[in-house]
Amino acid sequence: METASQGRVQQHGIVGMSPGAYARVLIFFLAPAVLVYTLFSVYPLLDTIISSFYSKQNDGSYVYNGVANFVTLLTDPTWSAPFWNAFINNIKFFLIHMLVQNPIGLLLAALLSLPVLRFRTAYRTLIFMPTMLSVVIIGFTWQLILSPLWGIAKMFLQAFGLGFLFGPWLGEESTALITISLISVWQFVGIPMILIYTALLAIPDELIDAATVDGLNQFQAFFHVKLPLIWPTIGLVSVLTFVNNFNAFDLIYAMKGALAGPNFSADIMGTLFYRVFFGNQLQLGDVSMGATIATMMFLIILCGVMIYLFLIQRRLQRYAF
């Protein structure tokens, strides 16, 4: 029998389709997603980074000036003071989430994953509810609750004999950021809770049984068996928290406006970016400096993600199942 097509060159895995038709199939399926994503996500991001290396001249044109914008941002006191203020505040914002939100999420997840628990679904569903709502709504709701005018918070503190603790927390420089951070924690605790809860469910019961047979009580079993197994998830939760926190804007804008007052005490990267880019009562909008701040945010987030990917995740994976 003749071997009609010795040594055929096969470019793709679909028999009976010409290379042209194959290319058309690929283009048909990939082009819409790639186009929209490139045009509205990748291109703007790159363009923003590029813009951060240009500055506006008096005649309105843009001229390349290297890293001058970054130097200005980090050294010129009119820029560096707000930048470092926002940066430090953002770190505080992040630390409060790490120290309050994630431990509470872990605790709730641990309780929810206990073997015999009634109303499990109800608890889970209800605790997750605030996460569903718009930050604008949450911000305003808490503003009302904390408002001395309505006095709900005061009433509660008084009920416990702690009335003296009450103060205009949102209005004072020393407490505004902490208060807003805690409100954010209140809203988003559902996310670490669900992620950790899922990871806990995935741990086979036999492991816990084995630990029980070895004589560990429930607390010991949790800390010595379950916790080590969910470190990767906690790592993931941490990096998600980091990215979201350094990208946050809505809550502070909704509660405090673009000025993130009093006296910028609640200013974070997101609000600083918005204010610089759009301008406000105090200054005109500045595209180049806005882009510079966005690029700094990009770099910060990138650092966080890289640290996670290359240091934390690698080390943790080894202990996973």
Binding site: F40, S41, Y43, P44, L45, D47, T48, S51, V243, N247, F249, G270, F273, F277, V287, G290, A291, A294, T295, M297, F298, I301, L302, V305
Partner: peptide
């Protein structure tokens, strides 16, 4: 991982 907001200027 990279929030699209950072490209808002453009």
């Amino acid at each position: 991982m990279v929030p699209i907001r950072l490209g808002s200027v453009s």
